[in-house]
């Protein structure tokens, strides 16, 4: 039950995009079509979980013993970026279909702030390794949910007669704000 609440809390209540305002760049950039949004979400779930796992190990087995936790940010960025590059290479060789599906999205999110954010939060909230991974999955699911919902709304904009000054990014930002307000309704769902 605790782990379910952890996922719900990360996905809905403290949604990374709409409550914590992390990862706005891909939220705006890859939300024009639902299918690309789904591809991006899959890549985010994959990278976030992997990154949480590795950065947790780095933090507790390298940084803490040496007493240099203040280097978290730079060390995490370094590790996440090279890890994703490595995974991308392996996928390209081992599973071309998976590479076709995830390939272009992987490099896009290597140093994304949502990915780095989940790694840092894992440490700040003092999660153990299992909790950290579950929290990352929940956060990534929340990111994917927000992205796909938003992409669905933006697809509908194509058919609406929007005033010229609001077309494109302006109306997207306004909608994101309203969507964020709607997600605020989840606060209090999980303590």
């Amino acid at each position: 039950m605790y782990y379910v609440l952890l996922i719900v809390g990360a996905a809905l209540v403290n949604n990374f995009v709409l409550s914590r305002f992390l990862g706005i760049c891909p939220f705006m950039g890859v939300s024009k079509r639902i299918d690309t949004a789904i591809g991006m979400s899959m890549a985010v779930i994959f990278v976030m979980t992997l990154a949480s796992f590795v950065t947790w190990l780095i933090n507790y087995y390298l940084l803490t013993p040496l007493g240099i936790q203040y280097l978290q940010t730079i060390a995490f960025i370094l590790v996440i970026a090279s890890l994703v590059q490595l995974v991308e290479m392996i996928i390209q060789r081992v599973s071309p279909p998976l590479y076709q599906a995830l390939g272009i999205f992987l490099p896009l999110i290597t140093t994304n702030c949502a990915v780095l954010g989940v790694a840092l939060l894992n440490i700040q909230l003092k999660y153990n390794l299992l909790e950290a991974c579950i929290f990352a999955i929940g956060a990534a699911l929340g990111f994917g949910l927000a992205l796909v919902v938003f992409a669905g709304m933006r697809e509908d904009f194509e058919l609406n007669n929007i005033p010229k000054a609001f077309r494109g990014t302006p109306i997207a930002l306004i909608t994101a704000g309203i969507l964020s307000l709607a997600f605020m309704g989840f606060s209090g769902l999980v303590k």
Partner: peptide
């Protein structure tokens, strides 16, 4: 540490 992580990552990559 940071140099080492960078070096190891570069080597693996």
């Amino acid at each position: 540490l940071v140099g080492g992580i960078g070096f190891v990552a570069a080597l693996i990559l």
